[in-house]
């Protein structure tokens, strides 16, 4: 094999490698990261809708769940949980609402992002229904009670007695109207 040919092979292989790493960074890393988050509960991200299975309710155990609401930058809505905290038994479905009020004179769309502390219990925090699964539009001046039903898994590790669930709402009005961003 001539030197030119083997140089060409090195170049082609390296460029393929480089292109592969580029694709890896854009197309593989983000979904891999999401998957990783879901598995480990990294960032306290809770999973998608959970189909309730018939589970025992562990009445011997009590877990306090505290609710927190935050507004991201330039999100003018009033957003708060109906109560600060509840004490639940693992396995028992609990319903709670968050109150949202669009105080502006424009129709807006919001998205709530959950975060759970301590974040390694995200795996044991199941939501059968949550307003965070979809974006929430509110017309100018409207208010709404946003519903959340959750079950704490009876397999919740020993020693975890208090969990804090927080939602941050973001203004995604522009994004919701932008077809590219929907991709």
């Amino acid at each position: 094999m001539s030197a030119d040919a083997s140089n060409r092979r090195v170049v082609v292989k390296s460029l393929f490698g480089a292109a592969g790493m580029f694709a890896f960074a854009i197309f593989i890393l983000p979904p891999m990261y999401d998957l990783f988050c879901e598995i480990t509960g990294l960032g306290g991200k809770t999973g998608d809708a959970y189909t309730a299975v018939d589970v025992r309710v562990d009445t011997s155990r009590e877990v306090r769940v505290r609710f927190v609401a935050s507004n991201n930058a330039s999100m003018p809505w009033i957003f708060k949980p109906e109560k600060d905290s509840v004490v639940v038994h693992p396995g028992e479905p609990t319903e709670i609402t968050y109150f949202a009020h669009n105080i502006t004179d424009e129709d807006m769309v919001s998205q709530a992002i959950p975060s759970l502390v301590p974040n390694n219990v995200a795996d044991y925090f199941h939501k059968t229904e949550c307003f965070c699964f979809e974006n929430q539009p509110l017309a100018a001046g409207d208010q709404a009670d946003l519903k959340l039903i959750f079950i704490i898994d009876p397999d919740l590790p020993e020693g975890v007695n208090s969990v804090t669930l927080s939602y941050t709402i973001f203004d995604i009005t522009d994004r919701a109207a932008d077809p590219i961003a929907q991709l």
Binding site: A18, A19, M21, F22, F24, A25, L29
Partner: peptide, 9 residues
């Protein structure tokens, strides 16, 4: 070759 494309990404 392995990581500059990641930065580019």
């Amino acid at each position: 070759v392995a990581v500059m494309p990641v930065l580019a990404g």
